[in-house]
Computed example of a mutant assay.
Amino acid sequence: MTLAVPESPRRAEPLLYKVSEATGILRLSRSVIYELIRSGRLRTVQEGRARRIPRSAINEYVALLEREAGESE
């Protein structure tokens, strides 16, 4: 008798990222991420004492960069 190994379900992308995770996603340094947060270019949320970056905020930031690149052309 052969047992079938079930396929593992795909892990859903997280909705909130730590700053350290956002550095990997955006390929930016920790200090640049914090400067973007301070300047209001990258939105964050507070969960208790932890600051998190919503996936939607990362998408919004990339869209902002694309718009700015289009304006300079």
Rank of each mutant, 00 (worst) to 15 (best):
M1K: 04
T2Y: 11
T2A: 08
L3A: 04
L3S: 00
A4G: 01
A4T: 02
P6S: 02
S8E: 09
P9D: 02
P9G: 02
R11L: 10
A12T: 03
L15K: 07
L16R: 02
Y17E: 03
Y17D: 05
K18L: 14
V19K: 01
T23V: 09
T23W: 00
G24W: 08
G24E: 02
I25Y: 04
L26R: 02
L26W: 04
R27D: 05
R27M: 03
R27H: 01
L28K: 00
S29F: 02
S29A: 04
R30L: 13
R30D: 11
R30Y: 13
S31L: 04
S31K: 08
V32D: 07
V32H: 08
I33C: 01
E35A: 15
E35N: 15
I37Q: 04
R38P: 01
S39R: 14
G40E: 08
R41H: 10
R41E: 10
R41A: 07
L42S: 07
L42P: 06
R43A: 08
V45H: 10
V45T: 13
Q46Y: 13
Q46C: 13
Q46T: 14
G48K: 10
G48S: 10
R49F: 03
R51G: 04
R52K: 15
I53V: 15
I53A: 09
R55G: 08
S56R: 15
S56Y: 12
I58F: 10
I58Y: 08
E60K: 00
E60D: 09
Y61V: 02
L64E: 14
L65K: 08
L65Y: 06
R67F: 13
R67Y: 15
R67W: 14
E68F: 02
E68T: 12
A69K: 15
A69F: 14
G70K: 11
E71F: 07
S72T: 14
E73N: 05
E73K: 07
